[in-house]
Amino acid sequence: MSIRKLTTLAMFTTLALIIFTIENAIPPLVPIPGAKLGLANIITLVILQSFPPKDAFFVLLTRILLSTLLFGQAMSLLYSLAGGICCFIAMYLVNRLLQRHFLYLTSIIGALFHNLGQLLVAYLLTSVPGVLAYLPFLLLSGILTGLFTGLCAQFTLKYLLPLTARLQSSPKEGDDN
């Protein structure tokens, strides 16, 4: 991994953390645990779209670990990891299936699987079947927030991609790893 790429990815991680921090400061809009915009996913989508999936995954993991260190407790790491990994795998597959088109669809699927992963962990931790009553709410909110973040990512790419392309177009960029 070249230093340039490392720096770019680190910058993206920082961006994701900043977005995450700002979103954390917004009071929850609906009183349903897990129903939030997930704005940091914009960054994951952008990287997934313009870098190899491995890089997107590393940025996601770094962001989750750092945000847990900064704000969360040990418990929230489990939720974030389960949600994040489910979301990433789903987004990777859908993005490949759609050949990088219709980014908002990828985002919606990602949000849905993020919520499913978190709900699964919640169910495993509390082992109260009643937690599953959140499922329709979380799926609905996943569709809405996924659509929103997906469109955000699409606009970001439209205006930010020229910038990242300029950052990447160094003579010694080469292939990854």
Partner: peptide, 20 residues
């Protein structure tokens, strides 16, 4: 924030404290 519930529709959940 979930307030008071009076239906079986949504349980109140405190995930950090494992309370439902």
């Amino acid at each position: 924030h979930q307030g008071f519930i009076d239906t079986s529709l949504l349980p109140i959940t405190c995930l950090p404290n494992h309370l439902v």
